[in-house]
């Protein structure tokens, strides 16, 4: 008890420790993305005689992807507010909306990949496309795992109600989803608005 008087620590209970640990994981995830951003910045002009980023990336598609993901972050926030209201039905409804928007986002990434590969601009074509597919694919994988977590944790909330364990998992899911949008802001800016103009 003496120790805690010297260092007032807000992470005193297990649940807060878990959430803090998850935050540290997200920060290391940022460093993973930093390496992929660095690779994209270095390799962007390495097109090996193929088309440049400006010629094959579509800004308007990326704008729609950004708006869809921004909306999903908002609906995720609204969903998380239902925990305090003890309203599982509304939580399921708003996470359903978030899931739908996230699913649309993944579909748009998939369409983008299809379009590039069909034109012979797959990830194996040159260094620029390798870095592009790796960065986009890694982010899309995060979104896909977010969708998986949504199904599992919302099902647990419906089955067991808002137990401390379920609340903790929903909290981690929320910050994971917000974090995925945070990364996307920089992808939209660096890959598209700066890289493809």
């Amino acid at each position: 008890m003496k120790e805690s008087e010297h260092f007032p620590d807000p992470h005193h209970d297990v649940s807060a420790n878990t959430v803090f640990g998850f935050w540290v994981y997200l920060m290391t995830d940022c460093i993973l993305f930093a390496t992929l951003f660095a690779a994209y910045a270095v390799l962007k002009d390495g097109t090996f005689g193929g088309p440049s980023a400006k010629e094959i990336l579509i800004l308007r598609d990326a704008l729609w992807m950004t708006l869809v993901l921004a909306a999903s972050a908002f609906t995720c926030g609204i969903a998380s507010l239902q925990i305090a209201q003890n309203n599982v039905k509304k939580l399921a409804f708003w996470y359903g909306a978030t899931f739908l928007l996230g699913f649309i986002f993944i579909g748009m990434v998939g369409d983008d990949f299809d379009r590039l590969i069909e034109l012979g601009n797959g990830w194996q074509a040159n260094a620029f496309l390798t870095s592009y597919f790796t960065l986009m694919g890694t982010h899309a994988l995060h979104i896909a795992f977010g969708l998986l977590f949504m199904i599992v944790f919302v099902a647990q909330a419906i089955r067991w109600g808002f137990t401390p364990m379920v609340v903790r998992r929903l909290h981690c899911l929320k910050i994971f989803w917000f974090f995925s949008y945070l990364i996307w802001i920089f992808m939209f800016t660096i890959v598209y608005l700066i890289g493809a103009t």
Partner: peptide
């Protein structure tokens, strides 16, 4: 709700402004 609304509206405006 206020915080999430502020974040959402700010995100939309800044995204459109950048685009």
């Amino acid at each position: 709700f206020r915080a999430y609304s502020a974040g959402f509206i700010g995100s939309l405006l800044l995204t459109l402004a950048a685009y």
